[in-house]
Every structure is written in structure tokens, then in C-alpha cells.
Design a protein around this nucleic acid. Structure first.
Lengths: 240, 240
DNA sequence: GCCGATTTGTCCGTATGTATC
DNA sequence: CGATACATACGGACAAATCGG
């Protein structure tokens, strides 16, 4: 895929910030300096800087400059908040990761499922239950409903690897938008049976809907995390 | 403050979506139709639509249109994920809300505080501990450090009302960016003493940093929520 | 399969407003 | 006041995806 100009510039500036080339609390070069460096237009630079601001790397101040507010994360754990798959996350954190599929069967959205997931009543689905292991400990329980028509050819073997890779490489599906809700809940019998709770009797729960690039919801997943390995990061910006 | 054109258009379209004028899974009018309606340029409409997409209201599909993916929330609780104050949230949910200040004193950032909050060592701070009551039940414990130089004139009486209103109206401070991390944690002795835990022994914890519009961090707050009243919403978009 | 109309995506150049110093 | 820097808005051009004939 050929990348857009603004995306390339965004990545370059982001990597410089992460490398510390631009100091925390310092200012980036001005927009005009970037225009001179990259040979692009005002709007293109602004789009790249807008992405960085939206992700909490920088903060623009009218009349002064664009301040760097990024610092490396201190607490270990999963970096969420953007769209990042389990495998990507594990790789970033250099952990030994495995997935075990504990259930895999078809289902039809009845009233209960429809209310919980947002799929329409009667929709044909596939139910997948996965356990995520880090360095041998079962830390995450994923319970997913997929839109059956969208994941034709999905097997337990594929689910053990990465369903996202299957989406993108085999089915050519581009994931675009996802919505998540984070809550904290008491661990259930099922959680206790499938996870290494290590004394914990509560979990951090992420319930998410995934939309294909044509806007159709194709997945609703509930991820139940042992709390000591879970952190969800989020950045918000108020319209000035 | 005079609002920007794109912001007004964004609000109009958003309110139509929330009112159901544009159906879930249906398409918005095309960009050209909006241009005709609002009498503005292509880019201005795109900026408004970009805001809606970023907040999970719509999902644009190249060559087809902009699909509505918003639906009213089902689960009661706090709407977070954007920047919304406790009072705004309570008003939206029509709850009877009160705040009690349980501690209020100056502090200096030592090694421990500096590591936990991100304030520099030696920085002069104000520590504020607040309990949020909904319909008489103590559900949330807020423990905040403020940059002393930025909140001059802050009193316990003001903290009982809204510190954000104090920021914006008295001090003329505009809050711009905030970063948050969500975790689930075991309730402490302090939590049990100050909150109505109602049998729960764990909490949803939001640790957040607030940046003033000049990019300086002025607040670091940890909000500890009883889990049955807490939900954090988030929308993510993967760069196509 | 091709072509043309429609729609969103990207990029440019320019102008003007507003805040900071 | 002027210089600098970010913010907003416009108009135009072309690319890419979709859909219907």
C-alpha cells in the first residue's frame, strides 16, 4: 500500500519524538520549517501534526509553537487505546505469548446475545473463546462473536494464531473503527476455571465492537484481563 | 468565544444523529449536499465529518458515503472517553450529586510523588482529596495533585464545587489535553473508610494528567470508582 | 468488461484571523 | 507595533473507490 504523504511525515516526526530528538516540554520546529524540510504544503503538515496531537504526543499552542508532551511509559502492561492486536502488543513488550482456543462453534443471535453484542436478532454468528497465555500464565479470556458471513473459512487453528492477520491477508478485510467500553467486574466460575487468577477475584473487562471498512460490525469481543497485567491508555482533547 | 464554522456544523450534524434523523447503519447526505446546505467549502465539511468519525459517530467509506454507526448507549453509567467533568456527567444522567472534600493541603513533590504523578521533583503542589456522592452514596474517591502556581486562590470551598469551572472562569485557564490510564485495583483501607463499597473489594481506577493550553501539566488525579457505576468508553480508528 | 457519474481521500496555494513575544 | 506561529477557511485539482448502465 502506498502511504499518503501526511502519514509518512507523521511517522517520521513521531519516531523522532520517541527517540528523544525533540525534548519533553520542548517545542517542535515550526510548521514553516517542516514545510521547508518535507517540501509539502501547510495543510499536509497540519494533518500530520493533528495526528500527533490526537495521540497525545504533542500539544499545539497558538502563537507559540507545538510542545512535546510525550514521555516513555513507566508502568509495564498492555498498551491499548489505539488499535493493536494481542500479538503486536506482546511483541512490543517482548513476552512469550500463546493462544488456546477453548470453544469454537456456530451460534444465532437470540435476544440475549443481540442485547449484549449489538448484532441484529437472527444474525448467524460464530462463537470463539480464546485464552491468552503470557509466559505460560493464562491471563486473558477472550469471548468473541463474529459475523459468520464475514469470516467464512475461519477455523480453530486460525483462531489460535491471529484472526486479524486472517482478516487482512486471507479475506482482504480492513479493520477501521472499533469502539470499546472498559469496566471492572467480579470474576465468574468460568473465569476461575479458565484463567490463572493468582488470588484475584475481579477482572478488568474490555467489551469492544469492530467495524469493517464498509461500516458493518463484524465482531463483538469481551476480553477479561487479570488486573495486574492490564492498563488501558487514552488521550482526550477538548476543542479549544 | 466565537465558534469556528466547522465546529458549528459538527454540532448540528451530531445532534441530528443523536436525535435519530440519520438512521443507524444508514448514510449521511454527501459532502456536496452538506456544502450546499451550509454554504461552506469542501475542507470545512471534511473537518466536521472528521470530528464525528473520531468520536465514533460515523464511518466514512470511500466511493460510497458516510455511514452512521452511533447508537444510544444501553448500559447506565458514566460517559467518559471525551473530556467531561463529574458535574456534566451527573447532569447528563440526571443524578443527585454532591462532593465532599476530605483533605486539602500543600505538598512538595518528593521522589515518590514525582514518580507517581510526573511532576518534577521539588515542584510545589496542592493535594486535594474529594469524595463524590451520587444520591447519597460515596462512589468515587478523587486524589489530586495540582501545580500550586497554577491554582492560586483555590480553596476547599471551591474544590467542593467544580475545580474546572474555577479554572475556566476565575483563572481563565483552558484545559486542552488529558491523558488517562485505566486499571482495576484492590480496594485499600482508605477506600473502605471513605467510600460506600457495598461489598466490593476492588475498584476501577482512572489515573489522569491534565495539560493546560500552553502544554504545562497542572493536575494529576487518581479517581477510584466503585465498579458497578463505572464504564469508560473509547473509540479507535486505524489509519486506512 | 468498460465507461461515466458520484463520493470520499489527498494535496496544493492562498488569504485571513488570532495569539505570543 | 511588527514578526512569528498556529488556526481557520476557501477554491481548485486529481486520485481512488463504488455503482449503475
Amino acid at each position: 500500500m502506498v502511504r499518503a504523504v501526511y502519514d509518512g511525515i507523521y511517522r517520521i516526526i513521531r519516531s523522532r519524538i520517541e527517540a528523544g530528538d525533540y525534548a519533553y516540554q520542548g517545542f517542535l520546529p515550526s510548521e514553516n520549517e517542516f514545510i521547508a524540510e518535507f517540501g509539502c504544503s501547510h495543510n499536509t503538515i497540519r494533518k500530520a501534526l493533528g495526528l500527533l496531537a490526537g495521540e497525545g504526543y504533542v500539544h499545539p499552542i497558538q502563537g507559540k509553537g507545538v510542545r512535546v508532551i510525550y514521555r516513555p511509559l513507566e508502568r509495564a502492561g498492555f498498551v491499548l487505546g489505539g488499535i493493536e492486536s494481542f500479538k503486536e502488543t506482546a511483541a512490543r513488550n517482548r513476552l512469550n505469548v500463546a493462544t488456546r482456543v477453548s470453544a469454537f462453534h456456530d451460534a444465532v443471535a437470540d435476544a440475549r446475545i443481540s442485547k449484549a453484542t449489538g448484532f441484529a436478532r437472527g444474525e448467524e454468528l460464530v462463537y470463539v473463546e480464546r485464552i491468552r497465555l503470557l509466559d505460560g500464565a493464562a491471563l486473558i479470556l477472550d469471548r468473541s462473536y463474529f459475523l459468520k458471513s464475514a469470516v467464512d473459512g475461519l477455523t480453530p487453528e486460525i483462531a489460535e494464531k491471529s484472526i486479524y492477520e486472517f482478516f487482512e491477508n486471507e479475506l482482504g478485510i480492513a479493520i477501521a473503527t472499533s469502539k470499546r467500553a472498559i469496566t471492572a467486574e467480579r470474576a465468574t466460575e468460568l473465569d476461575a476455571r479458565l484463567l490463572d487468577l493468582d488470588g484475584y477475584d475481579f477482572l478488568a473487562v474490555v467489551t469492544g465492537q469492530v467495524f469493517r471498512s464498509d461500516g458493518i460490525m463484524i465482531e463483538c469481543t469481551q476480553s477479561r484481563h487479570r488486573p495486574d497485567h492490564f492498563t488501558f491508555y487514552s488521550t482526550a482533547t477538548r476543542g479549544v
